[in-house]
Design a protein around this nucleic acid. Structure first.
Length: 736
DNA sequence: CTTACGTGAGTTTTT
DNA sequence: CTCACGTAAG
């Protein structure tokens, strides 16, 4: 492929972005504007025109999926071998760098990577040892604290702590890092921080990479956290006569929906300033949706104040109106969707092209139930992933012990699984020994087994013997054979065979061995061949792969099925038909978000992302009431619906009718009632669930009431104005 | 060590 | 309501 064919079909803006000169640039790429195409074409163009060799650039993404996609596209554009190229996730690239310089980074060559579950159990274990009250310091919060510190680029000693509570937190943080160091493990955030510190500390290594990566490309730049930004800055190097390496940052501030996990949209503005960005290229032509859908999205997002500014347009024409359905309740909403999907299917739309989106996972329940009853095939994203399953984690723990028996987390996971009579007492003793000697649990176990302290250490000799045997047998065998060892010799397989419902688990264990085969085939050839070392290093690689890439989200491929997922999970995807359900105040925008400073704007961006997923047809639905936390909740339509101009909308129903329900009228059973006398009921001018209007607060829904006939108060949910108690005597309410 | 029961919480998620 | 977790009893 020559340069002209490479650039064929790009629009002016895309072309401009792809062929920018050697300087840092910010590409504001709207939804559906060909972002990935621009990014990959830029790389291909740089390589093809000889401005850089495939090994002289670095491209970083957030997800493995995005990285793979980039490599796949690149392979189809250029006749090059992408193997060896530095294209990957932040974590993947940092891991690679740390492996290459593990000594300088003060890590063992076989360092293991903690996933979130590993990290949490390590923190719990540490807190127990430190005698920390886990009521005052919930382990999950401690983990969040540690991770967010690291994501800010801070170690324990650098964190500010003025009160006793935060000082204790800081102390746990410090001890946790020590523990990880002792055990030779790193968590996700550590991967980045360690890499960042290595580069800042070691000028030789830093300069090596700085002189190597003349071009750095970043995908989804709006999602970078502070540490990631610092890392990028470090790799880019200082501004000097020879010129700084240039960063090609692609992002969309309007699609920043991960502030809650540390993403800083502000990095975009900082980048502009820090890198003296001359060229901001806006990609505003959308190739995905018809203009009714796009205009709805634009209308919504213009309500945000804090934007870089961008307006999507399309040449595709108006298309269909945005369909809005007001449901009686959540079940009615689900049934409506089922009926619509059925007729779409009958009209020949493939089910795989239809997505049902919602704000929170809990909402999928009702939808699933309706779909199941209607016998429509569907697929829910977001469950447990392959490498996160319990049986797989157990097998991996055995494999981890083969690679490094001092991995206490792995040891604790399986020392008594399958059960071999090692109870809390012997475990405590082991931990005591380990603590007093400053060694690992494995070392303590060796002693306990060696001493032959048969009564107290019952079962431990067996476990020690097992791991030793695994380690011996693992020498010189292939990776799948190691996996076989971990599932067979460990007793896992036998255990699940005797389990009643262990069939699926056995199947997963088999799948793990298949994964090991696949991994071996894929990685073979790049291995440094040294007999005995092959299995070892490949084993470490496989374990790394398992931590860094937990696998597809429940890939049930093959069958055409409806796609159910949260709006977050839908980012980056597109569908011919999209249903967005649960558009009520409190749910979308989520009530929790309203307490946060920039919460509402992020919720609005979420809505923007959801709307822009649709190519051809968009349904928006909301329910007057729904069952939430086992209680009936009355909501009012989401403010985001009001932000869409009427002319883009087609209301599917004027007045919601109870199509079907819980078999009874919610209104007949008010939730909160101080007294249930007959007089009260008759004196109650408003039904629970009645929509009302208030001069000051606007539209609301009656939620409950209290008091007697003379002194009645009603509680009204005004959505964004909140819940209000109004005395009927004074408040003028009108039915809507 | 397993099972039963009680308690409490209950956005969004990738690595 | 429903699930996950922790504790108490068998």
């Amino acid at each position: 492929m020559n340069a002209s064919t490479l650039l064929d079909g790009l629009n002016d803006k895309q072309l401009e972005a792809v062929t920018l000169p050697h300087q840092s640039a910010l590409i504001l790429a709207g939804a559906g504007s060909g972002k990935t195409r621009v990014l990959t074409t830029r790389i291909a163009w740089l390589i093809q025109t000889g401005q850089v060799s495939p090994l002289g650039l670095l491209a970083v993404t957030f997800t493995n999926k995005a990285a793979k996609e980039m490599l796949t596209r690149l392979t189809s554009m250029l006749p090059i071998n992408t193997r060896g190229m530095w294209v990957g996730t932040f974590h993947g690239l940092c891991n690679r760098l740390l492996r290459a310089h593990h000594r300088e980074a003060q890590l063992p060559a076989t360092f293991q990577i903690f996933d979130t579950a590993d990290q949490l159990s390590a923190i719990k274990r540490l807190m127990k040892a430190m005698n920390v009250d886990d009521e005052k310091y919930p382990p999950k919060q401690v983990m969040g604290y540690i991770n967010s510190c690291k994501e800010e680029g801070l170690r324990a000693h650098a964190v500010e702590a003025y009160d006793a509570h935060s000082q204790r937190m800081r102390e746990i943080f410090e001890e946790y890092d020590k523990q990880c160091q002792r055990e030779g493990v790193v968590d996700f955030a550590e991967l980045l921080l360690r890499c960042y510190e290595l580069l800042s500390r070691d000028s030789t290594i830093r300069q090596h990479y700085q002189s190597r990566f003349k071009y750095i490309l970043v995908d989804e730049f709006q999602d970078t956290n502070r540490l990631q930004y610092l890392w990028l800055k470090l790799l880019a190097g200082e501004q000097q006569a020879s010129g700084r390496n240039c960063i090609f940052a692609v992002g969309d501030d309007d699609q920043s929906i991960y502030a809650f996990r540390g993403a800083r949209v502000g990095n975009m503005r900082d980048f502009e300033r820090d890198f003296a960005v001359q060229s901001i290229v806006k990609l505003e032509q959308n190739y995905r949706s018809y203009s009714n859908i796009l205009d709805a999205a634009n209308a919504i997002i213009t309500h945000n104040r804090n934007r870089l500014g961008k307006n999507l347009w399309t040449a595709a024409g108006k298309g269909e109106p945005v369909r809005v359905y007001e449901a009686y309740n959540d079940i009615d909403e689900a049934n409506f969707i089922v009926d619509e999907v059925k007729s779409l299917h009958a009209e020949g739309h493939g089910l795989g092209e239809v997505a049902l989106l919602y704000r929170s996972n809990a909402q999928s329940r009702v939808l699933e139930h309706a779909l199941f009853s209607a016998n429509l095939p569907y697929r829910v994203y977001g469950g447990l992933r392959f490498f996160e399953r319990a049986e797989i984690k157990h097998a991996l723990a055995y494999m981890r012990l083969i690679a490094n028996p001092h991995d206490d987390t792995a040891l604790l996971r399986v020392i008594n699984f399958p059960t071999r009579g090692i109870g809390a007492r012997s475990l405590e003793q082991l931990q005591e020994t380990a603590r007093s000697q400053g060694g690992s649990l494995w070392q303590a176990a060796l002693q306990a087994a060696g001493k032959g302290d048969a009564i107290k250490a019952k079962g431990i000799p067996g476990f020690v013997a097992l791991v030793k045997q695994m380690q011996e047998e693992a020498i010189g065998i292939t990776l799948p054979e190691v996996a076989e060892l971990a599932t067979g010799l460990s007793g896992l397989r036998t255990f699940y065979q005797s389990e009643k419902e262990g069939e699926d688990r056995i199947a997963n264990l088999d799948e793990l061995i298949n994964a090991a085969v696949a991994f071996t085939n894929q990685e073979i050839g790049v291995q440094v061949d040294e007999n005995g070392e092959v299995a070892q290093s490949l084993l470490t690689q496989f374990l790394t792969h398992a931590s860094l890439e937990a696998g597809e989200h429940q890939a049930e491929a093959g069958r055409e099925a409806l796609q159910l997922m949260t709006v977050h999970a839908a980012k980056g995807l597109e569908f011919k038909v999209v249903f967005i359900s649960g558009l009520e105040e409190g749910l979308c925008p989520h009530e929790q978000s309203l307490y946060e400073a920039a919460g509402l704007e992020e919720e609005r961006r979420l809505m923007y992302v959801a709307v822009t997923r649709a190519r051809q047809r968009l349904y928006l639905s909301y329910a007057q009431s729904r069952l939430l936390h086992g209680q009936v909740r009355y909501g009012i339509p989401s403010r985001f619906l009001d932000e869409i101009p009427d002319e883009l909308i087609k209301r599917l129903n004027a007045k919601p009718v109870a199509r079907s329900g819980y078999g009874q009228d919610y209104n007949a059973m008010p939730k909160v009632m101080s007294k249930t006398s007959q007089e009260q009921k008759s004196a109650m001018p408003w039904k629970i669930g009645q929509s009302v209007a208030h001069a000051k607060f606007g539209q609301g829904v009656v939620v409950s009431y209290e008091g007697n006939a003379n002194d009645m108060r009603v509680q009204v949910n005004f959505g964004r104005e909140g819940l209000k108690w109004l005395a009927l005597e004074y408040a003028k309410l009108e039915a809507v």
